[in-house]
Design a protein around this nucleic acid. Sequence first.
DNA 1: TCAATAGTACATAAATCCCGAACTAATGAA
DNA 2: TTCATTAGTTCGGGATTTATGTACTATTGA
Lengths: 134, 134
Amino acid sequence: MVVYMRPLFHPSVQDVTVEAILHALSDPVRVAIYADIVGQNCSHNCVAFSNISEKPIPKSTLSQHFKILREAGLIRGERQGVEMHNTSRCAEIDKRFPGLIGAIVTAHKVQLADGERQTRAAKSKAARRTARSK
Amino acid sequence: MVVYMRPLFHPSVQDVTVEAILHALSDPVRVAIYADIVGQNCSHNCVAFSNISEKPIPKSTLSQHFKILREAGLIRGERQGVEMHNTSRCAEIDKRFPGLIGAIVTAHKVQLADGERQTRAAKSKAARRTARSK
DNA sequence: TCAATAGTACATAAATCCCGAACTAATGAA
DNA sequence: TTCATTAGTTCGGGATTTATGTACTATTGA
């Protein structure tokens, strides 16, 4: 017997707020997840993201993160069999808040690139220091 | 005798993070304050914003809000006489994260306009209801 | 030096966040 | 059907953040 689950709540675009979007994306784990979902056009399940940051993220925490992204109107989550497929709602949101999502995702990329550059610089600096002290 | 205050902390543009910006602007009071500072090019003191939302905001709370905006790199605060002048750092930030601030401020305006439209609609609806029930 | 104004610092109550444990839903195998 | 497995959600309570009243500092003007 198949009992249909009550589907997840998704706000209509008109009820989406800038505050909720910014709050949802002000967490490093959530922007990373969202940037990933937006970047690749295929859908994603939750546990796929448990290693998105240095420390593995417990699944209860991941579930909360997805709920926040969903209720901010940023993603759509649909159960398909045993897992959840998450897709970006950026096309809808872009109509209401033009350029917002794009600018945030781009900014996130810039920051990532800068961070890697700094990390590389720090590493080679450390290497030079090590070399000198020999 | 004039004793110079230790000036307030302002992060350099390179240390500004997307997360801090989004977090700072994910609060309704803070976006409203920031949108105001960006919109008008003149500088502002803190207490000028105590009536920016429905409930008057205590000044200790306002001070915290300004600190968060400042430490996110969004505004520059400089003491001039007895009061503080706050100016937007959007030109600097725009170099690092192009379009980000603009998109957020625009989105905020869209939302404000939609809200007013809804409020007006609700008001006239209420008026019609009142008229009918007479 | 005193009063007034603008803002900050601190303490603590309220709200929010994180995450382990227990739970639900779907699938597949026996 | 029943059991095992996988994917997520919900709940509870400790940790962290946020809001704000009170007390403080800095500056100006009388």
